[in-house]
Simulated scan of single mutants.
Amino acid sequence: MLTRCDGEMVELYAQVSELMLAKQWFLTEGIAWVVKLVHQSPELEKVVANLVNSVNVVGVNEGIKQGFKAALGSVRSVEEVPGYDEGAQDALDTAVKAFDDLHISVLGKVADLMDKPLSVIQ
């Protein structure tokens, strides 16, 4: 009976040791690994690019509008000014919504590793 208890104790100690190693790895390297994966994710790259592009176009439109007001009389409407993008505000609104609704697929992959041993997680 004592031998069986000793075996169970050894097994429990091994499990606790594995958990301690997993916790240590997660706190020292794992979080940084996840952040790096998120930073490099194609979903984030696409959303940020769309957001930046939309902000730039809206800014250009605002400049054109101000220039149009200053040069009123030389063209009949702001839409006639070269470079004006009538859909810029809608594109910006869409990009902002996409940023707010962003789903990072790698986070699901990380969650799937919950029951895996440290060797698989690494």
Rank of each mutant, 00 (worst) to 15 (best):
L102E: 06
Q66S: 14
A71G: 12
A32T: 05
V78C: 10
K97Q: 03
E62P: 09
Y13T: 12
I104N: 06
L12E: 13
E8F: 01
R4C: 05
A111Q: 08
A91L: 08
L21E: 14
K36I: 07
G87H: 04
L44A: 03
A98H: 01
V120I: 10
K97M: 00
G63K: 14
A71L: 14
H39G: 02
E79I: 08
Y84P: 07
M9N: 08
L12W: 05
S74Y: 11
F26Q: 10
L19S: 15
Q24G: 11
H103T: 11
Q122S: 07
K116R: 11
E86G: 08
D101C: 02
V34I: 14
L19K: 15
A111R: 09
Q89V: 02
V78D: 14
D101H: 05
K97T: 04
K36W: 07
W33Y: 09
K23A: 11
L92S: 00
D112Y: 04
V78Y: 10
D85C: 15
I121E: 04
F26A: 13
S17N: 10
V35C: 03
L2V: 04
V34G: 09
D90C: 07
V48M: 01
A22M: 13
E86M: 10
G73F: 12
E45I: 04
V78H: 12
A95G: 04
D85W: 12
S74Q: 13
E43C: 03
I104K: 01
E43I: 00
E45R: 04
Q66W: 03
Q40E: 08
V10M: 14
G87Q: 11
L102Q: 05
M20I: 05
K46E: 00
A49G: 06
M9W: 13
I121T: 07
P42W: 04
A111S: 01
D112A: 15
I31H: 02
E8Q: 09
R76N: 11
D93M: 07
G87R: 10
L72Q: 08
A95M: 08
K109T: 15
Q122M: 09
D93N: 06
V78M: 14
S77I: 09
R4M: 10
A70G: 08
W25F: 14
V60H: 14
A98V: 01
D85Q: 15
D6P: 04
Q122L: 10
L27E: 10
M9A: 14
S54P: 01
L92I: 05
A88V: 02
S105N: 09
L21Y: 07
G67F: 06
L92P: 00
T28A: 12
G67W: 11
R4K: 13
G67D: 06
A98W: 00
F68M: 03
A14V: 08
H39R: 08
R76H: 08
K36D: 11
V55W: 12
L44Y: 04
A111P: 05
S17T: 06
A71I: 11
V48Q: 03
N61F: 07
L37K: 15
M9K: 15
V52G: 06
I121M: 08
A98Y: 01
